[in-house]
Design a protein around this nucleic acid. Structure first.
Lengths: 197, 197
DNA sequence: GACCCAATCTTAACGCTGTAAATATAAAGG
DNA sequence: CCTTTATATTTACAGCGTTAAGATTGGGTC
């Protein structure tokens, strides 16, 4: 399934850019960010390695594009969870996303793959925007002079918990789910006394 | 300063194992986990690359040893902070450690460098032990049926906050410090109502 | 419909990496 | 002093990301 139907067996691929991103996500879930390999991606797509350079500046750019997809997917999932009982449901959705796409989530919060390149700052900007969204969602619910601190607090718990869950630090799946719910419940105690509503 | 004084300019190094670990930590702070390179380490120590294999099974083993050092240092620092006002001081110390050794901290909570090798599970064990220590420290302070959830809660906030700080998501150093203190204060609200003491 | 152009992909090659094998050197023990 | 053993070296290999140069193709124009 590497080549589009109409282009199967032909010189041109069809939609190589998309195929690369798909394979990258696959690899990411199989082995985490360190498993991201341009040559392996090309191999899976059924194309020579340098072909990727017509669609991306380099491997980092692929990682960056995938991370961008990830932030989009996460935002969508969180939007879908807003119908629930507010913060708790969104927390569960957030962590659910991280668990379902652990490699992707790790990439979204890594310093790129090289730790020095400019992809790091691009990721940082995406994270900042995600945080701004959270802040905005929280704004009408709490005293204005505390929104920043509370948003940061919520993000810290959720992010930390998501990473611990991903790292297998919470035990098996069922046990993990239980612990996550408990922690989120405790988290709520800190802000329920000052809810505006 | 790569070779011990008494062995300067000689064939044998003196204490290559320690020199390797030191250089690895240096590299880690300069470029994070992806900057860990066996050849670069050897270059800095002033030794050929394969020399390292007499002291470590492979690069992953070096990373693992450095991470182990890290967990030891962190535990020591947290012990030193126990004289303060309990949880808040320990939280500050924890995050201070992460900020001062960001590359090391990231390594300690990464899935190794290969994401598939057995170093991942070794790291997981170290983290589990660190958590067990926290749990034990918390035990006499809270109701016994909640220690697990509360310990996890505290770790989540602290870990998440540490990572956000490291990622530069909290702004400049002075502003970051302020926000960290605020978040830790909020965190405390969730458990102060049920303190045993 | 033939032609050119631009986009896309390929092969070949470079310098880098981690690691293995074979070899040289030095330190330790009889 | 000679041998053994630990330690380091040189050489080599496969794989990586990336660049440069050439092949193949589809789309737009006369």
């Amino acid at each position: 399934m590497s080549r589009t139907e109409q282009h199967e067996g032909t010189y041109h691929h069809g939609d190589l850019r998309k195929a690369i991103l798909d394979s990258a996500r696959e690899l990411l879930e199989e082995g985490g960010p360190p498993a991201l390999s341009l040559r392996e991606i090309a191999r899976r797509v059924g194309v020579s390695a340098p072909a990727a350079y017509h669609h991306f500046r380099n491997l980092e750019a692929i990682a960056q594009a995938v991370a961008e997809q990830g932030f989009g997917d996460l935002a969508a999932k969180l939007d879908g969870a807003r119908s629930g009982d507010g913060m708790h449901a969104m927390g569960m959705a957030y962590i659910g996303f991280a668990q379902a796409n652990s490699g992707l989530y790790r990439l979204m919060f890594s310093d790129g793959l090289a730790a020095k390149s400019d992809a790091g700052s691009a990721l940082q900007a995406m994270r900042a925007q995600a945080f701004a969204t959270l802040r905005k969602a929280l704004e009408p619910q709490v005293p204005p002079d505390q929104t920043q601190a509370l948003a940061l607090y919520l993000w810290s718990v959720t992010h930390g918990l998501a990473l611990l869950a991903i790292d297998g630090q919470l035990g098996g799946a069922e046990r993990a789910q239980e612990q996550i719910a408990q922690v989120l419940e405790v988290t709520g105690r800190a802000l329920s006394p000052l809810a505006t509503t």
